[in-house]
Write a protein that binds this DNA or RNA. Structure first.
Lengths: 167, 167
DNA sequence: CGTATATAGTTAGGACCCTAAGTAAATGAG
DNA sequence: CTCATTTACTTAGGGTCCTAACTATATACG
């Protein structure tokens, strides 16, 4: 059996964490995509399923589209398309039921719920494989640093207009 | 002036670095996209320009498509499309000149080179803004940890087939 | 009350990424 | 030398993301 994965040349070391982050994310995507493909979904679709499942555990029937948009860091039109495809494949339902006639609630179907549960069974193993290169201390440090950076990036994003003046 | 940026709800803290990485990357994309848009290009197009520019500094006229694919972590068909659009907008040229008639070399046009140089002028400032939330030590630690993780992820990606058996 | 504004979601159109399958040139084995 | 395989790139088709502009409902203010 010959190796099917393309090899990616190692590049010159970055002088700041930016390139490392971008590259780590790229690799992560490349690893996770075939993983999710085995279940017939994409990473984005997993994001929807996972969030709806979490919502159910908190006693909610579903989540409105805007809520999903915020949680997944994607714009509402992207959620519309994503949910469209997932409705078509039977994983979620879109109900316009609330008192506010504008909102649509997205809910797991029985099929969607079963899929989430099936994926979650092996999920921790998969996460462990991804993290296996780092010891517990490294993981904690990395999480702390990324969290700190994320905080900063959220501020930069919010203050975009003032930032533009600094440049 | 009202804030135009959407606010994104802070979410439950992650129990591992994965979600932090994903979220940090999402924020980064969201910050950088408007930044590059001001120059009429996307982040991916910047990746092409930057790599071609670096190649020139190393004395190369251009890079072949496969080389770009490896450097950018994207598949050859994606490079084809990206380069198509950039040829159309006059930033790069595609020359099939080498002894090997299969390969196409992508090169900066004068216009593309000028754009890279114009962007590079303010680039360090922009990078500094992104990193401003972290002190020098944090930056070094973060880079070291991300680099270590990246190494591991590269191994996971290469050994995909054996990995599938472990799961 | 009635109109102006804000909010929830969709549609339209384009960029970017993927896999699968094709074309054309180079290489290698008999 | 010839034919099979490999390599470089493109084409086709689909998923995900974006911005801009639209529809419909809700709210707020004079």
């Amino acid at each position: 059996m010959k190796p099917k994965t393309l090899s990616y040349k190692s590049l010159a070391p970055a002088d700041n964490p930016l390139r490392e982050l971008i590259r780590a994310f790229g690799l992560l995507e490349r690893i996770m995509q075939p993983y999710f493909a085995r279940f017939g979904i994409s990473g984005s679709q997993w994001g929807i399923l996972r969030n709806l499942h979490r919502a159910e555990e908190e006693g909610l029937r579903g989540l409105r589209l805007t809520e999903l948009s915020q949680r997944l860091l994607i714009r509402p039109p992207s959620v519309t398309g994503l949910v469209d495809r997932m409705v078509r494949s039977g994983l979620v339902a879109r109900d316009g039921s609330t008192a506010d006639l504008r909102v649509k609630e997205v809910q797991l179907t029985r099929m969607g719920r079963k899929l989430v549960e099936r994926i979650l069974e092996g999920h921790q193993d998969q996460v462990n494989i991804l993290l296996a290169g780092l010891g517990d201390d490294d993981q904690k440090d990395l999480m702390r640093l990324l969290s700190k950076w994320r905080d900063h990036l959220e501020n930069v994003l919010q203050g975009e207009t003032t930032l533009r003046n600094i440049i």
